[in-house]
Amino acid sequence: MSKVITPPVSQMKASRGGTLYRGREGMWSWVLHRITGVAIFFFLLVHILDTALVRAYNAVISSYKNPIMGLGELGLVGAIMFHALNGLRIILIDFWSKGVKYQRVMFWVVVGVWVVLFAGFAPRHLINVFSEVGH
């Protein structure tokens, strides 16, 4: 009655031979926090290098003015916004006596505020990016 089988790919995403752990808001907010944190770090590293090399500065800055970099900037702002908002959530979890209790609610508040801020920023930014290209 038993047979050796290969489970559907959806069940096997993570480590080989194991299912992806099904954590909830807390785990996914941490995953996002780490990904955005590391991404911001590498951006800042590059950015500090290019601004530090004064001779390259003008060339580099003008090369930022293209749609690809514009979309990258959008992603960067989105990442910083999530990292900063969720960072405040983590600070509240650590230092507010009721923080642990309300961590899940606070996660959805972070998502909500992020959506509002991003919806405010993205259209303006994209208009800038794509209207400057022609000039």
Binding site: Y21, G23, R24, E25, G26, M27, W30, I90, I93, D94, G99, V100, K101, Q103, R104
Partner: peptide
């Protein structure tokens, strides 16, 4: 501890594990 809350959700005794860790911190 990175407060992922997986422990609190896994505990079969319903212990508020992350809360306890927070109190120890």
């Amino acid at each position: 501890c990175r407060t992922t809350f997986n422990c609190s959700e896994a505990c079969p005794r319903g212990i508020q594990v992350t809360q306890a860790i927070s109190e120890v911190k």
